[in-house]
Design a protein around this nucleic acid. Structure first.
Lengths: 212, 212
DNA sequence: GTCTATACTTCGATAGAC
DNA sequence: GTCTATCGAAGTATAGAC
């Protein structure tokens, strides 16, 4: 019942992701999205009301996807340290699967969230909240030292986004023999996990030291 | 002799920085830049050849400024650990002084460096090179463990840029009582310095341990 | 749900006088 | 160096047939 009705909006969203990621909201062209989605331009305005509404729908879906994956990790019964490792790996996987996600997030932050409605903002705010929960758990169990949630979040997320989104620039810089900026995704994730462990590690080296 | 001749281009660049940071290249309007710079629009095309050339001139100047400040730190005779602290503080200062710098960098990365000419690319590539030099010095002196230069660079720069550029979104999220994402710049810098020290710290806790 | 044709607007860029 | 006036190209959005 009505399964085909979804294929058009979904193809539009997929095409929109590529276009908005590559050019930003202002630079994106509805004609190009239509062509890539192999639908008529009028269909975009039929399914979504405007370019802006299409953009919002895309962002809601993106943040929801990320949040779902992170909440999965947070809900597991792994140790806090293992959860942090998994959060880093999960974020890296997500940006690996959805190659356009980093650019969209970068642009949205640069825009100051000007086009985010309340629901989308809530979905975005849920991301640092998940990380905060894991850190809090680690602190309670004595494995982590306390750090501000938003700091832990940015220390984790920002380098991953930068690393992925900067791939074209790094490749060009390396090709021009300016500096060698190569680093495999696997090595990067490994170093990120080590870094987060070091950032969050409690004062003492012993895994479970009594607090008092 | 001819000092006044510079005031117009400089005012244009200053206005362009605001406009490009807030709206991106595609979203920026030459008319708005002209109005903000209090010059006639035709003057922009007289001093710079096009919107694109104006944008490039702006980026060159930005990366040059950052590079100069970082090279100053690298050239000092501080210890590598102290230099890392100063690099973090310097970057934080820079984005504090030039509030529009983070957004421009975010957008340029998202664009994949599409509008960077070779000179600008070289000025950008010099940034991780400076950090790499400091890390290398620390490794040689036995104070740091070896990490890939581009990793050390992103771990340092990405959170700072994100933190600054996300200020409007964080404020809105906090105001809507979704989550409390407040964190003072001073506290943020302090935590960043601590984090970088932990990431780079050599295996042993002793400051100057003989290598062999 | 789908397509064609087009109205309406905005914007980058320049011509040409001073 | 500076200003006015304007061209021409895109671009969003919709009307209306099927």
């Amino acid at each position: 019942m009505g399964r085909k009705a979804r294929v058009s909006p979904d193809r539009i969203l997929a095409a929109a992701e590529v276009e908005f990621a590559a050019r930003g909201f202002a630079g994106a062209r509805v004609d190009r999205i239509a062509r890539r989605a192999r639908v008529n331009k009028a269909m975009i305005y039929y399914h979504f009301r405007s370019k802006q509404e299409l953009y919002r729908a895309l962002l809601r879906r993106m943040f929801q996807t990320i949040g779902d994956r992170l909440r999965e990790v947070a809900a597991s019964d792994d140790s806090p340290a293992a959860k942090i490792d998994r959060v880093v790996a999960t974020l890296a996987e997500l940006v690996g699967e959805h190659a356009h996600l980093p650019a969209v997030m970068l642009r949205e932050i640069a825009d100051g969230g000007a086009r985010l409605d309340r629901d989308t903002l809530a979905a975005l705010a849920a991301l640092p909240a998940v990380v905060a929960g894991i850190v809090q758990q680690g602190v309670t169990e004595g494995a982590f030292r306390p750090v501000p949630p938003i700091f832990a979040y940015f220390a984790m997320v920002a380098p991953i986004i930068f690393y992925r989104a900067s791939a074209p620039i790094r490749a060009e810089v390396t090709d021009l023999h300016l500096v060698d900026l190569r680093l495999t995704p696997e090595a990067f994730v490994h170093h990120m996990q080590e870094a987060q462990r070091r950032i969050l590690a409690g004062a003492g080296p012993s895994p479970s030291r009594p607090t008092s």
